[in-house]
Nucleic acid binder design. Sequence first.
DNA 1: ACCCAGCCCTGGGCGC
DNA 2: TGCGCCCAGGGCTGGG
Length: 274
Amino acid sequence: MPELPEVETARRTLEQLVVDKTIEDITVHWPKIIKFDEGVDSFIERLKGQTFRSIGRKGKFLMFYLDGDVLVSHLRMEGKFSVKSETEPDDKHTHVIFHLTNGEQLRYNDVRKFGTMHLFKEGQEYGVPPLTLVGPEPFDESFTLDYFKAKVQRSSRMIKNILLDQSVVAGLGNIYVDETLFKAGVHPERRGSSIEDIELVRIQQAAAETLLDAVEKGGSTIRSYVNSQGKIGTFQKQLLVYSQQGTPCPNCGREIIKIKVGGRGTHLCTACQQ
DNA sequence: ACCCAGCCCTGGGCGC
DNA sequence: TGCGCCCAGGGCTGGG
């Protein structure tokens, strides 16, 4: 499941592969992925002839900058982009194909079909959903203690739910939230209003540290997730609690347990996280 | 303002 | 071997 580190890894890889390449045509096998009011046909027509200029990222969104337009894509659970020669056969989960003028293809593959693509005129993308709902990333300068205090300590929601809220802090998903709360020593079911300043600082540091470390390792490869070059990340080897239920806590040796928080599988050590 | 269920999907794991 | 069932989950919507 791509979270910020996996999306950033994809961004870096794709930038090497598609910048300066031009879209000749687009094939859409699963139209629901295209979130464009004017329809799939106009989506295709508008992108034809445009060249990829750069690739950005905001939270878990990939942003492909072209000639005046920006394609904003969310990979959701299992979405992935790859660049292949047009002679390579595509599998049944390839739903969108950008045919490039050099004979290559940028392919969007998604077993769950949950991913999305929005298209905006460059400059308008931040004024409308989905990007209006994306807050600061853990290492942004605007992610200050005062900002975080206001969002957390005035809330009765559980801290895990607050951290999964992309408008509060962008980039964390189920894996890295569990890792962050373990490192910070905070129980995921604690109410926001009960979290002390010192704990908020620990959460901020743990979130930034965890995400940056995972970016360095190329993200986590859970199940079949691989990046655009088919390479796998290695961060899953150093997950402290996620999917570690039944094994000893790396800190105290007590058993890591799995519970449900807000409908999400949640991994923690009840001794280390109060 | 919050929570929850349901929705979108399919493959994998389970019981039988 | 295989069927049917349930689960996983990010973001969104609709109802309480």
